[in-house]
Computed example of a mutant assay.
Amino acid sequence: MYNIKTVVKLVGIPAVTIRAWENRYGVVEPGRTDGGHRVYSERDVEDLRWLKRQVDERGMNISQAAKLLKQTNAERRDEAGRQELVPEADNEPALAPDIRQLTFDKLQASLYDTLIQYRTEEANSLIDMGFALYAYEDMFHHVLVPILYRIGEEWESGKVSVAQEHFTSNMLYQRFHYFFRVLPVQSNMPKAVAFCPSGEHHQLGLLLFVLFLRKKGMEVVYLGTDMPLDGVLHVIESKQIRFVCVSLTGDCNLNAALGMLRHIVDEFPDIRFVLGGSAFSGGGHPYSGFVLSGDPAKWESWFKDQVGK
């Protein structure tokens, strides 16, 4: 147990701030000596250190950090209580991750487990916690997209059911579309349309690129997968599209996709393409100069060259 002077030295927070956080947000509950002086446990010290990091290093406000900390501690107590009541139950969920040690890998593992068990509320809570702790691009790149790749691979190998794959994919795709809606559009920016052509259903790389464009302030009409030509032409004309973003992984659909690009150029000679996916990146076609890799650093260079000037 530590007195408040020692805690101040250990965590680097002034005593008046510790008392304010304690009284206003209830982040710690120190004991009292016989003389009425506060005494803090090792857990209290750890909690205060974690809160300080969120405020100083991640720019989180204290009320938000305190809410996350209390939520996680409550989840840990609830889970511990359930495990104590049923110590030998099969498939008992693991303890909720400690928010102070919630790395991308730990968050990814915990979230995956909740999703394949259809635990909607817990999954949403973990996702919300991740977005509060990390930049949203990091959450997509290091947590949500790896889960989507994993669930797709495990569905193809028969390790998970169609229902599990659909539930997980729908939950996580909703987060993409939420950010597509709320990120502000800059009226002076050119507009883009993004889609996977007919026969193509792999959209993860394209979703990440659309998220990048939306962060930059571009309006992007996202058409999704298996998109036929007529609908694309209508969008280009009606929305005055400047950039057409296409992703293709299946080589079997490459010739049809190249024919689609030719039709677009015939109708709109000034259009600019952005092409991604393994089918396009193989080269040997007239549009190789428009291929962009999946490296976000390359996206930044492309944007500066093609849009930002």
Rank of each mutant, 00 (worst) to 15 (best):
residue 7 V to M: 00
residue 119 R to Q: 13
residue 85 L to C: 03
residue 62 I to E: 14
residue 306 Q to V: 01
residue 103 T to G: 10
residue 133 L to P: 04
residue 102 L to P: 08
residue 237 E to R: 13
residue 258 L to V: 12
residue 23 N to R: 15
residue 250 G to V: 08
residue 102 L to V: 05
residue 53 R to N: 07
residue 162 V to M: 06
residue 302 W to R: 07
residue 24 R to Q: 12
residue 19 R to M: 03
residue 245 C to H: 08
residue 259 G to A: 06
residue 152 G to L: 05
residue 249 T to N: 14
residue 200 E to C: 01
residue 199 G to F: 01
residue 36 G to Q: 02
residue 274 V to N: 05
residue 75 E to K: 14
residue 161 S to L: 06
residue 249 T to V: 14
residue 258 L to Y: 09
residue 195 F to P: 13
residue 200 E to T: 03
residue 199 G to N: 12
residue 269 P to F: 09
residue 35 G to N: 14
residue 209 F to S: 08
residue 248 L to K: 10
residue 12 G to Q: 02
residue 268 F to M: 02
residue 79 E to S: 14
residue 6 T to N: 04
residue 6 T to H: 00
residue 216 K to H: 13
residue 66 A to P: 00
residue 222 Y to D: 06
residue 29 E to N: 12
residue 82 R to W: 02
residue 301 S to F: 00
residue 308 G to N: 15
residue 283 G to I: 08
residue 87 P to F: 00
residue 11 V to F: 15
residue 67 K to C: 02
residue 133 L to A: 04
residue 47 D to T: 11
residue 25 Y to Q: 02
residue 203 Q to K: 13
residue 57 E to G: 04
residue 69 L to M: 13
residue 20 A to D: 14
residue 18 I to H: 11
residue 25 Y to L: 03
residue 303 F to G: 07
residue 287 Y to A: 02
residue 205 G to M: 03
residue 261 L to F: 05
residue 29 E to M: 05
residue 177 H to W: 08
residue 78 D to L: 13
residue 13 I to H: 01
residue 146 P to G: 05
residue 58 R to W: 09
residue 235 V to S: 04
residue 215 K to C: 03
residue 190 P to T: 09
residue 122 E to L: 11
residue 209 F to C: 06
residue 129 M to S: 11
residue 11 V to S: 01
residue 195 F to G: 03
residue 286 P to K: 00
residue 99 I to F: 05
residue 54 Q to L: 15
residue 219 E to P: 07
residue 2 Y to F: 15
residue 157 S to F: 02
residue 219 E to K: 15
residue 225 T to L: 01
residue 82 R to T: 08
residue 109 A to Y: 04
residue 195 F to Y: 14
residue 113 D to G: 10
residue 88 E to L: 11
residue 39 V to R: 04
residue 102 L to C: 06
residue 134 Y to T: 01
residue 8 V to T: 12
residue 72 T to D: 06
residue 215 K to N: 06
residue 250 G to F: 07
residue 279 A to K: 05
residue 195 F to E: 02
residue 245 C to Q: 03
residue 164 Q to D: 04
residue 235 V to G: 05
residue 216 K to T: 02
residue 27 V to M: 02
residue 172 L to T: 03
residue 290 F to H: 07
residue 282 G to N: 15
residue 151 I to N: 00
residue 239 K to N: 11
residue 14 P to E: 12
residue 93 P to G: 05
residue 95 L to Q: 13
residue 124 N to H: 12
residue 91 N to H: 09
residue 249 T to Q: 10
residue 28 V to D: 00
residue 91 N to L: 10
residue 43 R to I: 10
residue 22 E to R: 12
residue 114 T to Y: 00
residue 213 L to T: 02
residue 251 D to M: 14
residue 307 V to H: 09
residue 157 S to K: 09
residue 239 K to L: 10
residue 126 L to D: 01
residue 83 Q to P: 01
